[in-house]
Design a binder for these strands. Structure first.
Lengths: 331, 331
DNA sequence: TTGTATGCGTTATCAA
DNA sequence: TTGATAACGCATACAA
C-alpha cells in the first residue's frame, strides 16, 4: 500500500487540500489541524512524490551538470562545490559526463530537458554552434564554469591575466628564460590566452619571446612528460618552466628528476591549477591557484539566482599564487 | 505554448493514445500513422515530460548515488564508471556528497525517496544502524561499492587478500622489514583487513610481526607524511613501506625524499589503490591496483539487473599488482 | 488500427 | 478555516 497525500488526508480526517497546505506551509488552517496532520504524516512516514509535485506546477529543484572528463581532480573539485551549494539550496544535481563527445552531449541535453531541469551548468567545455542553438531553445538559465561563450554567462578566472601574473612572478624571481608548457593550442579559452599572458609578461619586462620555448600539449600528464623531454633533448636554454596545468607540471617534474635535475636548485617550476596534486608533489609546487571549489559553489548559486529571476553577470573569480617549494630566486 | 503529447496528437490528427503508442514503440498503429506522428514530433521538437511519465507508472530510470568525499581520485573514478554505465542503460544519476555526515545522509535519503529513485548505490561509506533500518524501509535495490554490510550486496576487492598479496610481493622481493602505513584503525572494511592481510603474509613466510612497524593514519596525504616522519625519527628498522592508500604513499615518498632517501635504491614503496596519482608520482609507484572504474561500471549494472528482478550476489572483484619503479629487489 | 476515459500524486482555484 | 475539483502530461485498460 502506497502512502500518499490521500491516505494521509483520509487518516487525518481532512481533505488533501489541507494536507497540501500544511505540507507547503501555506496558510489556511488552524493550529490544531496543523499539528494533527503533521503527526499523521510522521506516523505514516509520508514523503511527497517529487514527480507529482513537479507535474502539478511546483519547481522541480533539479539542475543538470554537463562535464567532460569526470575523473580528474579539477572536475571533481568543481563538482564538489557545485553539489555542496545545491544541497544547501535544496536542489538536486544530475551529472552528465559528456566525455567531450558531441553526440553524447546532445543526448544528455535531451534527457535533461525531459527531466524538467530548471537550470544547466556546463563545466570546462567548449560549445559547438549546434549546441548553442539547442541550448538557447531550451529557454532555461545556463551558466558556464571555467569556460566561456558569448551567448552565456560564466564564472572563471581570467586566464590571460592569471598567466601573465604567473609569468611575472617568475620574472620577479629572476627568471627570464622560461619554458612554457602550454595546453591545447586550439583551445580558445584555456589554451591560447595563457600563451598570450606568458608572452605579454615577457615583453612588458623587456624580454624577448622565444617561440621555441613554447611547446603545445593537451593539459595531461603524458604531454607534460613528452614535452619536457623534448625540451631537454633539444637542449633548450631555460632556467624555469611554467606548466599550464598541474598534471603537466608533475609530468615535467618527473622527467626533470630523471635527468638528474634538482628542483628548485637547478630548475624552477610554477604550475597552473592548484589541485591537490600540486600540494602532493615532491617538492610541493608553487602554483597559480584557481579556486575550483568556490567556482562550483558560487556558480551554482549564481544559477539559482538566475532561475529565481535575478539578473546575473559573468564573473572573473580571483586567482592567487600559492608559494611552495618549487621555485628558486635567481640573483 | 508548451509542446505536449496533446499538441502533437492534435496536429497529427490522432489521439494521444496513438502518439503515446508510437512514442513507446508499443504496437497498435499502421506504418502510415507511425510515420506521420514521428514526423510531427520531430517538427515540433517534442520531448516527453519525464515527470509525467514517471507519475503515470513508467519507470523513472533514476538512480541515487551516496558518496563521501566527492573530490578524491578514488571517488571520481568510481563515479566515472558509474555514470558511463548509467548512460549506456539510459538511466540518470543523482549524486549526493554525504561528507560522511549522518544528518546529511538522512536528508539525502529522503530527497532520493521523494524523487522516486529505482535503486541506490552507496560508495565507500559505512552504514549506521539507523541508516540500515531506513534503507531497508525504502524497499528498493541497493548496492554497495567498495564497502560492505551484511544487509546488502556489494562489489569490492577483498581487502584482506589484496593486502596479503601486496605484502607477499614485497617479501618475494626480499623485503621482510616492512613498515605498514595503515589507514583508519576503526574502519572495519578498509582499515583492519589490510592490517590483518599484512600480518598474516608475514607470519606465513616465517617472519615476526613487529607492532611498532604498523602505524595508523586516515588514508590521507598528510597522515602519510606525518607517520612516515614519525617512523624515520624513531629510526625504526625497515627496508620498505607498504602504504594503505596512494595518497599516504605519496606523502611517505615526500618525506623520504626530504630525508635524502633514494627510492627505490634505499627504500622500496608499494602503494594501495592505483589511482592516477600512483602513476604520476616520481618515481611511479608499484601498486596494488583496485579497478575503480570497473567497480563503478559493473556495480551500476548489477544494480540495474537487480531492479529488473534478477538476483545479484556480492562480488569480490579481482585486483592486480602493477609493477612500476618504486621497488628494489633485495638480494 | 484507433480513440475514450481513468488514474498517477500533487498543487491551485474556487466555493463554502 | 476548510473542501471539492480541475489541471499537470502521460500511460493504459477498455471500447469501438
Amino acid at each position: 500500500m502506497k502512502i500518499t497525500i490521500n491516505s494521509v488526508a483520509e487518516k487525518a480526517g481532512v481533505s488533501v487540500a489541507t494536507v497540501s497546505r500544511v505540507l507547503n506551509q501555506k496558510e489556511g488552517y488552524s493550529e490544531d489541524t496543523r499539528l494533527k496532520v503533521l503527526k499523521i504524516m510522521k506516523e505514516m512516514g509520508y514523503q511527497p512524490n517529487a514527480l507529482a509535485q513537479g507535474l502539478a506546477g511546483k519547481r522541480t529543484q533539479t539542475i543538470g551538470v554537463l562535464i567532460p572528463k569526470l575523473s580528474s581532480m579539477v572536475a571533481s573539485t568543481i563538482l564538489n562545490g557545485l553539489e555542496d551549494a545545491a544541497h544547501k539550496k535544496e536542489h538536486s544535481v544530475i551529472i552528465c559526463n559528456t566525455d567531450n563527445d558531441g553526440k553524447r552531449t546532445t543526448k544528455y541535453l535531451q534527457v535533461l530537458r525531459q527531466r524538467q531541469i530548471e537550470g544547466l551548468i556546463i563545466v570546462s567545455q567548449q560549445l559547438s554552434e549546434e549546441e548553442v542553438i539547442f541550448l538557447k531553445k531550451m529557454k532555461i538559465p545556463i551558466l558556464l564554469i571555467s569556460t566561456a561563450n558569448e551567448n552565456f554567462k560564466h564564472i572563471k578566472v581570467n586566464d590571460y591575466a592569471a598567466s601573465y601574473d604567473a609569468t611575472k612572478y617568475l620574472i620577479e624571481k629572476g627568471h627570464e628564460k622560461i619554458l612554457f608548457l602550454s595546453g591545447t593550442k586550439s583551445d580558445p579559452i584555456a589554451g591560447l590566452p595563457r600563451v598570450f599572458g606568458y608572452q605579454q609578461a615577457l615583453k612588458d619586462h623587456g624580454f624577448k619571446v622565444k617561440p621555441e620555448l613554447i611547446i603545445y600539449g593537451d593539459f595531461d600528464y603524458e604531454s607534460g612528460k613528452v614535452n619536457m623531454k623534448r625540451a631537454l633533448e633539444k637542449k633548450l636554454d631555460f632556467t624555469s618552466v611554467f606548466a599550464a596545468s598541474d598534471e603537466m607540471a608533475v609530468g615535467a617534474l618527473n622527467i626533470a628528476y630523471n635527468h638528474g635535475l634538482k628542483i628548485p636548485a637547478e630548475l624552477s617550476i610554477i604550475s597552473y591549477d592548484g589541485t591537490k596534486l600540486s600540494e602532493m608533489s615532491t617538492p610541493p609546487l608553487t602554483v597559480l591557484n584557481q579556486p575550483f571549489y568556490k567556482m562550483g559553489f558560487d556558480g551554482l548559486n549564481m544559477l539559482i539566482d538566475n532561475i529565481n529571476g535575478q539578473k546575473v553577470v559573468s564573473r572573473d573569480i580571483p586567482y592567487s599564487i600559492i608559494e611552495r617549494e618549487s621555485i628558486k630566486r635567481l640573483s
